[in-house]
Every structure is written in structure tokens, then in C-alpha cells.
Design a protein around this nucleic acid. Sequence first.
DNA 1: GCCGGCATGTGCCTCTAATCACAAAAGATT
DNA 2: AATCTTTTGTGATTAGAGGCACATGCCGGC
Lengths: 209, 209
Amino acid sequence: MKFLKIPAATITRLSLYTRALEGQVKDQVTVVSSKKLAELCGVNPAQIRKDLAYFGQFGVRGVGYYVKELLFDIKKILGLHREWHLAIVGVGNLGCALVAHENFTKQGYRFVAAFDADPMKIGRKLVTGLLIYPPNQMHAICREKKVEMGVICTPAEFAQEIANRLVDAGVKALLNFAPTQIQAPEGIKVENVDFSVKLDNLAYFLTAG
Amino acid sequence: MKFLKIPAATITRLSLYTRALEGQVKDQVTVVSSKKLAELCGVNPAQIRKDLAYFGQFGVRGVGYYVKELLFDIKKILGLHREWHLAIVGVGNLGCALVAHENFTKQGYRFVAAFDADPMKIGRKLVTGLLIYPPNQMHAICREKKVEMGVICTPAEFAQEIANRLVDAGVKALLNFAPTQIQAPEGIKVENVDFSVKLDNLAYFLTAG
DNA sequence: GCCGGCATGTGCCTCTAATCACAAAAGATT
DNA sequence: AATCTTTTGTGATTAGAGGCACATGCCGGC
Ligand SMILES: NC(=O)c1ccc[n+]([C@@H]2O[C@H](COP(=O)([O-])OP(=O)(O)OC[C@H]3O[C@@H](n4cnc5c(N)ncnc54)[C@H](O)[C@@H]3O)[C@@H](O)[C@H]2O)c1
Ligand SMILES: NC(=O)c1ccc[n+]([C@@H]2O[C@H](COP(=O)([O-])OP(=O)(O)OC[C@H]3O[C@@H](n4cnc5c(N)ncnc54)[C@H](O)[C@@H]3O)[C@@H](O)[C@H]2O)c1
């Protein structure tokens, strides 16, 4: 276990490993080799061992990895051993689908606040019972509910403004679904989920690949 | 213009460039430099020039790039000058949001078929007027409607089976929203959209970063 | 028609990430 | 207890992507 900067790709793969491991737990498998896990995740076995090596030693030579143990350890590395408080901004088609999605809750991601600018929506409750607040209460509510991550589901033209507000309210991590590049100050992490870029990749593949 | 293998990251960035360029068109800007475009997209100017160099020469030295021309050229490279036929499988929370999303249509992605296993949904029409078919008609309908891309929005445990069926029906490109790794034969392109991996990245950042 | 300024296109270098290959070590076997 | 088998952990190697810097070439001004 050296003290090195960890590649972003490693973190993304760790997330993939947890999924495969959860599948193995469900299938009553107790031990897994890097080779087997690599097959399940579609990566190189050495890659897995190296990814894990950034954080310590988790395996037993000649045996492999104990599934439950490894799962626990990776979850702890990623910070999935605890619950996270999320706020959603923009409760339209996509926003509602996200809040309704029970997998997130299972993984420890809990929506504790919702915001929308539409006067017809403010004051209403989502299917989960979550109350919709107007954007101008973002600061107060986010602090009160200890929101740690913000999910942006508004049209693209408002995304930057919403991001600014969320940051202002002390939110340190943003998941942006709007098709636009968000500027955020140092120390704030922004992840983009961009469906149309993925579609464009497919279009290119079908055209040229 | 050399004959080289083009990095996947280049294609993804080209997609980003089109967005920025569309914004510039809207703002009546006629010429843009790699420096300016780089700022808009949050990348390095040389990166942009290099990305474009894979496909030819599009700029004018001492001037920059003509916005409309470049936009047209990049769209052509990506295959966005034409319409694409998509099928969606799994018309639940997420699936409905996707079909309802008008941006996709604007960009030339048209949903021409929808499938779901739920007997309550089969035979009904979506808000767009799209009829929902049972999965066993996938082969026939996909061929009839000339479906080129499949969008998978079913629970994870059915994703692989759906992928197989779509491939069997002649679909060459898949966009998978289910949190699972899909195996597809050579020549089939699979792109995954994975929200929870992104959330895990944020969790790691807040925990360790 | 020539000259200066400016942004592109591109060779070269750097840095990072992925893969290989082997020594180390744990458990099984005799 | 010694040896064999297996799979980890990791140094070395390879591949690849990103950034720098400059020559090239175009436009506008004089
Ligand atoms: N629906 C999809 O499948 C899809 C796919 C890709 C990207 N996106 C992106 O996700 C975002 C949301 O998509 P959608 O389909 O849910 O749109 P939508 O129109 O259904 O919902 C947008 C919601 O944001 C709210 N809103 C608008 N301005 C706001 C503001 N300033 N503050 C707070 N709330 C505000 C609206 O009232 C509405 O409820 C868009 O940027 C869209 O481009 C959506
Ligand atoms: N909703 C979200 O925000 C969200 C977020 C991340 C990932 N996902 C993933 O997207 C997928 C869909 O999510 P959702 O929220 O829309 O779920 P959902 O339960 O609302 O919808 C799933 C739909 O798939 C249909 N279906 C089930 N089995 C099928 C089969 N064999 N063939 C065809 N259709 C079938 C169901 O009838 C249902 O309509 C899931 O894999 C989920 O994990 C969703």
C-alpha cells in the first residue's frame, strides 16, 4: 500500500466491483479470484489487483478474495458504509424517475429535499412523500437537512444558476443531468450524466465504425 | 489527416463541441477560435485542434473556425446529419422520461418502437402516441421499423436477455441503463449509462478526496 | 503587392494508465 | 515437514492520451 494519487478510473471500477460482488453474495459464493471477478466485470485481472493494491491487501494468496469481506472493504473505501443526503432540483420527468428509484435508497442515497420553480409543483408532495420547495429556500433547507449532494434535473439554461445556489448552500458534490458544462469552484466535485453524448457515440459507431 | 485509430475520448469531445457550437450559433457568433471553444467546453485548445485533425482541416489560420460550417462538419462526422430509429424496452419511470424527452427528437433520435413485459402496459400508447408491444414481437417490429439503436430500461436481471433479443433483431447499438454489464457479440456497440457509479464517485470524493 | 499579426495544424515530449510477468506466500497434499 | 499448486501483490514494460511549442499559412492593413 503506497501513498499514491488514485486514478479516477480506479474509483469507477471499484464501483463496478461492488456490483459484481453483491451478485456473488446473492449466489452464495464465498470466495472469488481476481480472474473470476475480472470476467464478471469485463476487465483485466491484473487491473483488479492493482486497483485494490492502492488501498491495501485484501486477498489471500493461492485462494483469492473472501466475497463478503472484500465487498465490505470496497464499500468502506468508497464511503458507502453510511447514508448520504441528497437534494433534487427540478422535479420533471427525469427528476421524478430518480426520486422514485428504490435502488438508490438501498445503496444509501436518500433524497431529503426537492426543489422546483414551477408554482404548480411547489407545496405538493412526491410519491415518496417528499415535499417540493421553491428554489429560494434552497439555502435554508439544504443546511437544515444536511444535504451533501445535489442532483440537477432542470433545463440546461438554469443548471449553472442552480449549481451556484447549491454550492452556496454548502453542497460539495453535484450530479448534473442537464446537457451543459457546469463551472464550480475548487473543492466541489461535479459529475455529469449525459445521455445524448452516449447516443452520439453510438451514432458515430454506426456511421464510421 | 492521417489514417489513425481515433480515441473514444475524441468522439465524446466532438459531441461536446457540437453543443457549444450550437450555443454560439444561437448567439449569432460566426467565427470561433480553438481557444474560445476550449473555454466553453472546459478542455485544452490544442486538444480541440488535434481532435479535429483526425478528420481533416476545418479551420482558417489566423482566423479560427466558421461556427456553422464546423458544426455541420462535426455533425456529419458523428452521423448526426440523419435521423436514427430507436426502440425502447422497459417503459417504466425512466423509460417514459426518455421517450418524453423532446431534446432527443430535436437531435434526430426518434423512438419508433416501445416494448414492455407488463400486460397492463401492452397495447397502451405513450404520451407521444407510441404503441407498447410485448417483447416477443421485438424481432418483427424492429425489422419492420428499421430500428438501429436499442435503449434498455428494464430491471437489471432482464437486461442481458433483452440485449440478446435486440441483437437478434438486427440492432447494432445498445444504450443500457440497467446497472449490469452486458455481453454482446463482436460488431455490436454497447454504451452504459450508470447513475449510481457516478454517485459512488461523489461519495468517494466526499469521503477521501 | 508586400508585410505583420494571429490562429491553425502538427511533431515531439511528458505523463498517466493498462498490461505483463514473476516472485512471494498461503493452503493442500503426501 | 517438505513439496506442490494456486493466486496474490508488484516491479517492469508497453501503450496511449494529453499538452507544449513552433512553423505554416491566411487575412487585413498599408
Ligand atoms: N428526460 C430525459 O430523458 C432526459 C434525458 C437527457 C437529459 N435530460 C435533461 O435533464 C433535465 C430535465 O429533464 P426533464 O425531462 O425532467 O425535463 P422536465 O421539463 O420534465 O423537467 C424540468 C423541471 O425543472 C423545473 N425547473 C425549471 N426551471 C427551474 C429552476 N430554475 N429551478 C428549479 N426547477 C426548475 C421545471 O419546473 C420542471 O419541473 C434537462 O436538462 C434535460 O435536458 C433529460
Ligand atoms: N429510475 C431511475 O432513476 C433509474 C436510475 C438508475 C438506473 N435505473 C435503472 O433503469 C432500469 C429501469 O428503471 P425504472 O426506474 O424505469 O424501473 P421501473 O420498474 O419503473 O420500470 C421497469 C419497466 O421494465 C418492464 N419490464 C420488466 N421486465 C421486462 C422484460 N423482461 N421485458 C420488457 N420489459 C420489462 C416493467 O414492466 C417496467 O415497466 C432499471 O434497471 C434501473 O435499475 C433507473
